[in-house]
Design a binder for these strands. Structure first.
Length: 492
RNA sequence: GGCCUUAUCGUCUAACGGUUAGGACGAAGCCUUCUCAAGGCUUAAAUCGGAGUUCGAUUCUCCGUGAGGUCACCA
């Protein structure tokens, strides 16, 4: 809903530090960010590190780097505690304990009297009898005293059918099978997600919980815990899933989902990722597809979030990246191209890289042929860059138009081009159109393919390249003539 | 299996119950061209199935079917 909120909007992104961030996580973060910014609210980055087994060293920094790259700045985060304290759950243990004791006092929490093996036995038995396993069927008659070494379980206050509202899905409900005595605090002293996130959301005044739709099924449990604690419900927003190409599964780390920072390394722009991710699972209802971050903030709304899962399509991502590259200032763009060219060995040592005049001629040629910076590497691998910097190598057969023109005929044409070019003044080489006018009439009389094909191959050494006039313009009078002369020597 | 969610071109999606079901990516074709690239134009391509409500369902209801999620001392 787009109505003016009565209280300040607070959203959060709450990843667990178990590795990198993939596009699904980023999209959730993006929605939470956009909604907070649109409402001049607060965006919190909370680290949910309550599972020390799965924790991966360095993930917190990695997550922060990912968000920073995309410009999703948080108001409170790991290095920036709020009035509510730390944004790292492992530093909030005493708070969880406090609420655990409140629940115990109210009779809504009790120590689990069973061993893990015993619980596993119950589970197996239920499975054999084709019943759903519910721990509450085995709830002890009398609760023992919790000494902190057993898991602390929640006692569901009321077994009932829960109904609630989701900003994306509308009114939802689930039967009482969804309710159970889940674990609040594990035997290692850390709280579970189910417990900790609710305490934190409440204490951090989170008004709007935006997360993936995989949490819909556990929402009734959350609601029963909100009730037991006497907390008001926040707004629930379930974002649709991002699916794998084959649609068979949600995108996850095990299914080849990429680290968002890989897209950075491949030379996608952060603007593109934001724009693209926003549009997968949300749309403004207009035909506009290209958005700046600011525009997204202005136009984003919860009620236009999609219900169905969506596939991430890299072809469209490439197209969109090109569109965003076009919007860059030319200077910035050229600097970036230069940087990527310098990464390629054969080219990096070329003195031409320092030649501003020369480089300004090839920047547009390269830009035309890429949709992300790493495409420059691809161009290099296919030999589509080297000929700008070094004399190309090729077989003399390649000079022959359609492989049919005899060598001596081709040589005659090239000799004529040499004559024409030698007569031309240096100024004429500074203009593609002028170069074209020098040669074009002759080529047309003789047969354009007959003349232009060998000329182009002489200059580039390739069957595919920019037109010969542009090549002459780039290479200049001297080098162009050298290359054509060389071609003539091949054609004996 | 229980519970829950979901369904428009290949993909992302638009359409107060009334449209020739629109746009974008991709594809194909044409133009431009010696070859690429870029650009311009054009075409093909969808309402999962069946009932019902209605003068009229992509849209509302029900039943199927497909797909996904979830049932942890993971988040």
């Amino acid at each position: 809903m787009d109505n003016i909120p009565s209280q300040k909007v607070v959203t959060r992104f709450a990843p667990s530090p178990t590795g990198f961030m993939h596009i699904g996580g980023v999209r959730t973060a993006l929605f939470a960010y956009l909604w907070a910014r649109k409402n001049n609210g607060t965006f919190i980055l909370r680290i949910e590190d309550t599972d020390k087994e799965r924790e991966v060293e360095g993930s917190i920094t990695h997550i922060q780097n990912s968000l920073k790259w995309l410009g999703l700045n948080w108001d409170y985060g790991p290095e920036k505690p709020g009035p509510f304290g730390s944004c790292i759950q492992s530093e909030r243990l005493s708070t969880y304990l406090e609420y655990a004791h409140i629940l115990i006092k109210k009779g809504y929490a009790y120590p689990d009297p069973y061993t893990q093996e015993e619980v596993e036995g119950f589970r197996k038995k239920a499975e054999e009898e084709k019943r759903a396993f519910l721990f509450r069927d085995h709830r002890p008659k009398e609760f023992g005293v919790w000494d902190g070494t057993q898991p602390l379980r929640f006692r569901v206050p009321e077994i009932k059918r829960y109904a609630w509202h989701d900003e994306v899905r509308g009114d939802l409900e689930a039967g009482q099978e969804a309710l159970d005595d889940f674990i609040l605090i594990k035997s290692d002293g850390y709280p579970t997600y189910n417990f900790a996130h609710i305490i934190d959301d409440h204490n951090m005044h989170v008004t709007c919980v935006i997360r993936g739709e995989e949490f819909i099924s556990s929402t009734p449990r959350f609601l029963s815990l909100y009730d037991a604690l006497g907390f008001p419900y926040p707004q629930f927003v379930s974002a649709p899933q991002i699916l794998r190409d084959d649609r068979t599964k949600k995108l996850g780390k095990r299914d080849g989902a990429k680290d968002i920072l890989e897209y950075k390394d491949e030379g996608y722009l952060p603007e593109t990722m934001i724009n693209f991710l926003a549009l997968i699972g949300w749309n403004p209802g207009t035909e506009q597809e290209l958005f700046s971050k600011q525009e997204l903030i202005e136009k984003f709304s919860l009620d236009r979030i999609q219900k169905a899962g969506a596939v991430f399509n890299e072809q469209k991502l490439d197209w969109m990246n090109k569109e965003h590259m076009k919007l860059m200032p030319e200077k910035t763009r050229n600097t970036e191209i230069l940087t990527w060219l310098s990464k390629n060995n054969q080219i990096s040592t070329s003195p031409k890289l320092q030649n501003v005049n020369f480089m300004s001629k090839i920047f547009p040629i390269i830009f035309d042929r890429i949709s992300k910076w790493s495409d420059i590497n691809t161009l290099n691998e296919t030999g589509e860059l080297a000929y700008f910097f070094n004399t190309p190598l090729y077989k003399k057969e390649q000079l022959s138009w359609k492989g049919e023109s005899p060598a001596e005929v081709t040589k005659k044409y090239l000799a004529r081009i040499i004559e024409i070019l030698e007569l031309a003044s240096l100024e004429e080489f500074d203009n593609v159109e002028k170069i074209k006018s020098l040669i074009f009439d002759y080529a047309t009389e003789t047969g354009r393919g007959q003349v232009l094909w060998p000329l182009r191959v002489a200059l580039s050494g390739l069957e595919k390249s920019p037109d010969p006039f542009t090549l002459i313009y780039i290479l200049g009078k001297e080098e162009s003539l050298d290359r054509i002369h060389y071609a003539c020597t091949l054609l004996i």
